[in-house]
Design a protein around this nucleic acid. Sequence first.
DNA 1: TCTGGGGTCCTAGGACCC
DNA 2: TCTGGGGTCCTAGGACCC
Length: 380
Amino acid sequence: MTDDRRTGLPSAAARGVGLEGAHDRYIGHLDMDAFFAAVEQRDRPELRGRPVIVGGLGPRGVVSTASYEARVFGIGSAMPMSRARRLCPQGVFLSPRFSRYKAVSEQVRAILHNAASAIEPVSLDEAFFDLTARAASFADATKQVIAIKAEVERTTRLRCSVGLAPNRLLAKLASELAKPGGIRPIAPSQVRDLLDPLPVGRLPGVGPVTRRRLAGIGVQTVGQLRRIAPEVLVREFGQHGGYLHRIAHGEDETPVAARVESRSISREVTFPEDVTDRQHLEAVARELSADVARQLQQEKLVAKTVRIKVRFPDFRTETRQASFGVGIDSPHLLGQVATDLLRHRVEIGSGGLRLLGVGTGGLHRSAARQLSLFDETGWG
DNA sequence: TCTGGGGTCCTAGGACCC
DNA sequence: TCTGGGGTCCTAGGACCC
């Protein structure tokens, strides 16, 4: 913001170092419109203009993406598929084809890589990118964004929405405002007028729980949140309170930077029907472990903790974990630990389980990878 | 309406060590 | 015999995001 110096000490301290003299950044956020459904409609022209719903087709599936035609019926992401079918019986219901989406996503990322000094993918259909080092002014950055959007749409034959703003928070809000298919620059001078009327739930990081708690202290809009003293927010929400204060002011110094390494790798399944058979559950645990191990090895990582996750028919969810002094990546060992945890640390009642998951954490590079690093630097 | 699957980050309590 | 405080690691759960 242009008037950062106005607020005084607490927020300046909370923002951390390096702000003084920092000049405006030009941060972009690109979001593919109704991505999974749009890819299906692009690949199969007969689906164009029809309500297309992509998601899990089993009895317990949920909607991943609904095309704009389907949204007219009130269908949206995370909705149970059973409900979506009731709302729109004539809809076209499809299982996701992730490898297809991933290929498109890589095309988009390549374009962004080429155009920006840094990019940070958020998911298959979303990415932040930083034009600060490549643009002479906000107007110049806007021109570049127009070109980027055109290239993405020409290459993929899909529509996207793009936001441009001084930071990630605002860029993300901007791309939402740009939907569908638009470009929305937010200049620093516009920030307050734009934020103040928004409901707090529109801010990233404010979910249902925080929204309810904020409503409890009389806060419903960003403008109201902005007027709450930072000390009050910190007292109520701890660390998160400091974050709330900053985003209410439209402040976000987080850099655009691709994550280097996975912090956790996991697989889980929700069964079509609750499973009571222990043998079956243990077999599934071993399969999930093998999948996790495969990915660990692919990424040249080993795990120091192994975790299982169970969900009961009443939706209660529990986790159990075990840690080790050395890193693990073998499917057999992972499966052994997972089945042990399942057998000895969880009370599975007569109702069985509706979900079983195997996860790993405490990841670090495996020895093999370290050796190859030595090789690369000529020390091998 | 009946709730996926893949993640990230944070919190709080307890063990253990110095 | 009673009792410190800090640091780190582990565990379980939870909020949130796409």
